[in-house]
Amino acid sequence: MPGSASGTLALLHTSPVHVPVFETLRDEDHPGLGLRHLVREDLLARAREEGAEAVAPAVAAALAEAVDEGASAVLCTCSTIGGVAEACAADLGVPVLRVDRPMAAAAAAADRIVVVAALLSTLEPTLALIREEAAGRGVALRTLLVEGAWERFEAGDREGYLDAVAAAVDSVREADVIVLAQASMADAAARTTTPVAVLSSPRPGLWAAAGATASGS
C-alpha cells in the first residue's frame, strides 16, 4: 500500500535518467515525501578512472550540501560510490543510505547469486555488499558483465541498453536469484523471460530511504 512520509529526502545521482524513475516511485509509493535531486555525473566518471575512494571528499561535500539545504536523509543511487556515500553518515548527522543495500539483503538469503552489471566498477562494490549482508553464510557468487551495454546507455539508447541487459539476464543458468547491480537496469527485469527471481534496487531502496527520512525529520 502506498504510504506517506514527512521530511525531505535528497538523492545523489550520477545520471539524470534516475530523476524521473524515483519521482515515479515516490508518486506511487510515498506521496508526501519531498525529494531533492543532486545529479553529479562527474563523480562516476572519476570513480571509474581513479577508484571510488578517490572521490570520497567530493561525495562528502555533495552530501553535506544536501544536509545544509535541509535534507532529513540522503540516498545514493549509484552502486559504484554507494559505499563511499554510506561511510559519510557519521559526520553528517542524518541517515545516508545506498540504494542497493535492501536488494543485496534480499539476494543474500539465496544460495546461488548472479550479479549482472554494465559497468566493471560496479561489480566489486556489489559483491562486497552481498557478502556483508550474508553475514558469513556461504553463498555462491558469480558475475556477468554486459559488454557494450554501457556504451548504449551513454549514447542515450535506453531501449537498446535495457534489451541488452534483459538478454544477458536470460542467458543465466544455475542461479537462485539474479541481481541487477545498477539502478539504471531496473526496467530490464520486465523484459526478461527467465523463471529466476530478478532483483533491482530503486523501489526497495526508496522504501528504506523514505523510512529513514520520516525518522530523521
Rank of each mutant, 00 (worst) to 15 (best):
T193E: 15
E132K: 14
A128D: 15
V84Y: 00
A175Q: 00
V114N: 00
T77S: 11
R112W: 01
Y161Q: 10
L11Q: 06
S6R: 14
L199R: 02
V55F: 03
L12S: 05
R191W: 07
A134R: 11
A90V: 13
L25P: 08
G82K: 10
R46F: 05
L141S: 01
A197R: 01
E159N: 13
I178S: 01
V99R: 01
L123I: 15
S171H: 09
T194K: 10
A5C: 13
S200D: 13
L35R: 04
L43M: 01
V165Q: 02
A56K: 03
G32W: 07
A104I: 05
P125C: 14
T192I: 10
A66H: 02
G70K: 07
L144Y: 03
R46A: 15
A108L: 03
P2G: 11
I130A: 00
A58F: 03
G156Q: 13
L33N: 04
T14V: 12
A90F: 06
A183W: 00
R137M: 05
L35A: 06
E133S: 14
A212K: 03
V116Q: 05
L145S: 07
E86R: 10
P2R: 10
A61Y: 09
V94L: 11
S201T: 03
V196R: 03
A109C: 04
G156T: 13
